[in-house]
Write a protein that binds this DNA or RNA. Structure first.
Length: 826
DNA sequence: ATAGGGTTAG
């Protein structure tokens, strides 16, 4: 509900000549008394004692004095100092009551314009100002000031033009407002014009004007000009430094901003709240923890750390750098917390995926009587998406509808994203369509949602649609297109888009390269992934842990120890933060590339180990058939108090399979269910089936019948191996047909059959099958099947070292290697 | 004259 707008009906003064007289006509013996009252009122107002001066006014009035414009003027000035609107309006009313002589007084009218303008009462101010005779330097300045505060920047510039046209001098108090308007509108040319005016009028030495110029150039992105003005300043104050710092920060040059703060300290300029806030924000944006912490200390030294805004900035800093505990500490110490502070703390929990605390804090907000604003709603929607809590998401959506917040594109984006993350793409689309003014991020949100699903057609359609709607795609949009292709197996199209984006003036960034690398590896295009990685390094883009993990997975697919070592070296040389994911993939790389000892070395160096790291190391041992080491590790992790999970058992069981440890395998399987409460998965059954088959136990079939899953190709493959081993030819044929029916296009079938042959040393059949695969053009995933056959052969050799001496195996491995290379260099 | 929070891509 919007409130009714009443028209402004200020009483019209009588139509007569304007006056300039300040003092009323008073008889001589009263003159002295009046003057002494005037003096007292004047002094009191300058001391900020407005109410006492009003009392004097009452005294004067009770003595039937006529009050002149001089006293009313001073009182109004007092109201300006205090921004006391109601008192000023009462004085205005009194002036109107006094009739013609005062209400047509230009001095008072000007004062009233200034008064209303300073109180941000634009309409009242304009009522008086619209009279041409009231327009002077003072009233113009006040009007431009209020336009500026209310962000009517067009009006500010129009006013500036009119002032100059009419020959009024725009002084160094008004120029900063004009420059702020130029900055707000990003009108660089106009701003340069004002710069010229400044030079002509000789305001060049005014710190206010020059600081405003720095700010204006910074807001318009003209950093060189900003720097030049700053360099040319004879006198600088904190604001000048702050303006330069924010210029850099607002244009994304956070390191530069940090440097400016440092120079400012070197010059001995004491930072203000604004300096600290800007500096801390820059630190937060580049995760400069050390610098930020120093900023915190400086804030404490200057006693600025408990203020709402500095506190908020500190919470932001610790939130962005993942130091949740520090953020909490600052937050709890803050005396006054506004909605921004609360939202930031919530945001901290959202960013660091602490769901419980997120929702608790939101409840706390309501308990403290705060109302959620659009930012809070955005955060809750994001949280709901993260944990795929559709119920919470829907409630948030409803709450936004009730509070009329869905028109906010940022809120809308988060809701679209929430529905997408909850696998409700149609709801996401519906919300998207309902937003009238879609911005780039909103488009990108839906693009990303379709890309995630691999719906490349829908993504492309949207990609063209946004351009038709006049929203040019940016890197993020292109990245989604590339991702959509990769998720859909359209490697060529992805690569084409990658090379095409440059001609649209869009530069591929870290994310582009990373998603390409990861996607190419997933599509088995390992060599392409490696060259994209090299291209990225040549372009000077610093890989992060995600891209390193991607390229490491290329190394292990290609079993390229050499490249893997190089990447490990890169990580160490560049002092990259060893997070668990990165460490795990290095361990995995060494294990998969056959360097199990090095894998263990890296493993031992990680101080805080998680279950995933143990799993990786155990599966590495499994791959190499090192059962005693694997079992030891399995014991170690339990004595560390870490609970083995489903994947741990998959690794251990696959180890048993490799090593043919039937008793141990069965024991572990039973323990897993009874002692550890892990529900057996298809993989677990698969390992056991394979183990039993391998050892020639027909119980494998019984196990397959009793398991609560339909057997997949791997399990059928294991049974097939058993059949081939035990000359159960009919059953083998049956299984092969079944395999072909389940997944006719899956090269894994052939791999399984090939494995079966390999297990039985049926090398002729292996090569025959290889020929068949080549004929059938199973080239969609070049290299994949060969790599797997190769691995299985490796395992075969590893199981029985005497066979590794056989010339037959050796030559086959060599052949496979050349074929692998031939296939993947396509 | 200068300053703090939310949404999208791996």
């Amino acid at each position: 509900m919007s409130s009714l707008q009443f028209p402004l009906n200020l009483p019209k003064p009588p139509n007569s000549q304007k006056t300039q007289i300040l003092k009323p006509h008073v008889e001589k013996h009263h003159q002295i008394l009046y003057n002494s009252y005037f003096k007292q009122i004047s002094t009191l107002i300058k001391q900020g004692k407005l109410h006492q001066s009003v009392n004097l006014l009452h005294e004067l009035e009770s003595q039937r004095f006529t009050i002149g414009a001089d006293i009313y003027g001073d009182l109004l000035q007092g109201c300006v100092y205090e921004r006391n609107l109601s008192l000023g309006m009462q004085i205005h009313a009194r002036i109107l009551k006094k009739g013609e002589s005062l209400c047509k007084n230009v001095f008072l009218e000007t004062k009233l314009v200034v008064f209303y303008a300073k109180c941000d009462e634009l309409d009242y101010a304009l009522c008086l100002f619209n009279d041409d005779e009231v327009k002077n330097v003072f009233s113009w300045s006040a009007i431009i000031g209020v336009y500026c505060r209310l962000r009517f920047y067009d009006e500010v510039l129009l006013g500036f033009n009119e002032m100059v046209d009419k020959g009024f001098v725009v002084d160094n108090f008004v120029v900063p407002n004009v420059l702020k308007a130029c900055g707000g509108l990003l009108w660089l040319r106009f701003g340069k014009g004002v710069h010229g005016y400044v030079a002509k009028m000789g305001f060049g030495d005014c710190v206010f004007v020059k600081s405003s110029l720095v700010d204006m150039y910074g807001k318009c992105g003209a950093l060189e000009d900003a720097g030049k003005v700053f360099e040319g300043m004879g006198e600088r104050n904190v604001v000048s430094w702050n303006s330069l710092m924010t210029s850099y920060a607002q244009n994304g040059l956070f390191e530069e901003a940090i440097r400016v703060f440092w120079e400012m300290r070197c010059e001995g300029v004491e930072p203000s709240v604004v300096s600290l806030v800007s500096f801390l924000s820059a630190c937060a944006n580049v995760c400069a923890v050390e610098e930020g912490k120093q900023g915190h200390s400086i804030a404490i030294l200057n006693g600025l750390d408990v203020g709402n805004i500095v506190g908020t900035s500190l919470v932001n800093l610790y939130s962005k750098t993942g130091l949740v505990k520090d953020a909490e500490k600052v937050f709890s110490k803050m005396k006054k917390k506004d909605i921004v502070a609360w939202n930031l703390m919530v945001s901290c929990y959202v960013q660091n995926k602490q769901t419980e605390k997120t929702l608790d804090l939101c409840r706390d907000m309501l308990f403290k009587g705060l109302k959620f604003d659009s930012v809070t709603m955005t955060l809750i929607a994001t949280c709901a998406g993260d944990i795929q809590n559709l119920k919470l998401g829907k409630e948030t959506h409803c709450q936004c509808i009730r509070n009329n917040l869905v028109g906010d594109v940022t809120v809308a984006s988060s809701i679209v994203d929430m529905y997408a993350k909850c696998n409700k793409i149609h709801d996401a689309r519906r919300v998207f369509s309902s937003v009238r003014s879609k911005d780039l991020v909103l488009w990108n949100t839906l693009l990303a949602a379709y890309a995630e699903l691999g719906s490349s057609g829908e993504t492309l359609k949207l990609f063209y649609e946004m351009q038709l709607q006049g929203v040019p795609p940016n890197v993020v949009s292109w990245n989604s297109v590339i991702l959509a292709f990769l998720r859909n197996g359209q490697v060529k199209e992805a690569m084409d888009s990658f090379s095409e984006m440059g001609s649209f003036g869009i530069e591929a960034n870290l994310i582009t390269h990373t998603s390409l690398i990861t996607g190419l590896v997933q599509n088995r295009c390992v060599d392409e992934a490696i060259s994209v990685f090299q291209e990225m390094l040549e372009k000077g883009i610093k890989p992060n842990s995600v891209s390193i993990v991607g390229i490491l997975s290329a190394c292990k697919t290609r079993a390229s120890l050499q490249l893997g070592k190089a990447i490990h070296g890169y990580v160490l040389r560049h002092g990259m933060h060893m997070n668990v994911v990165l460490a795990t993939s290095i361990v995995d790389m060494y294990a998969k590339c056959g360097y199990i000892k090095q894998a263990r070395k890296v493993f031992d160096m990680i101080l805080v180990k998680e279950i995933s790291l143990y799993n990786t190391m155990i599966s590495g041992y499994a791959l190499h058939g090192c059962h005693s080491e694997a079992f030891d590790l399995f014991k170690d992790l339990q004595s560390e108090g870490i609970k083995p999970d489903s994947i741990t058992f998959t690794s251990i069981l696959s180890l048993c399979r490799h090593c043919g440890l039937i008793t141990e395998g069965l024991d572990i399987f039973i323990n897993m269910i009874t002692k550890h409460g892990v529900t057996p998965s298809m993989e677990h059954y698969g390992c056991l089936v394979s183990l039993l088959s391998k050892c020639g136990k027909s119980e494998a079939f019984r196990l397959v019948h009793s398991m609560p899953f339909k057997p997949d190709s791997h399990i059928l493959g294991s049974l097939l191996a058993y059949c081939i081993e035990n000359n159960e030819t009919d059953l083998a044929k049956y299984l092969t047909d079944k395999l072909a029916k389940i997944e006719p296009n899956n090269s894994g079938n052939y791999v399984a059959l090939s494995n079966a042959y390999a297990t039985n040393e049926m090398w002729d059949e292996v090569s025959e099958l290889r020929g068949f695969m080549r004929e059938q053009g199973i080239k969609k995933n070049p290299g994949c099947s060969w790599v797997q056959i190769g691995h299985e052969l490796h395992a075969f050799v590893a199981n029985d070292r005497s066979k590794s001496q056989s010339y037959e195996i050796y030559s086959m491995l060599a052949l496979l290697r050349t074929e692998m290379q031939a296939n993947t260099n396509l």
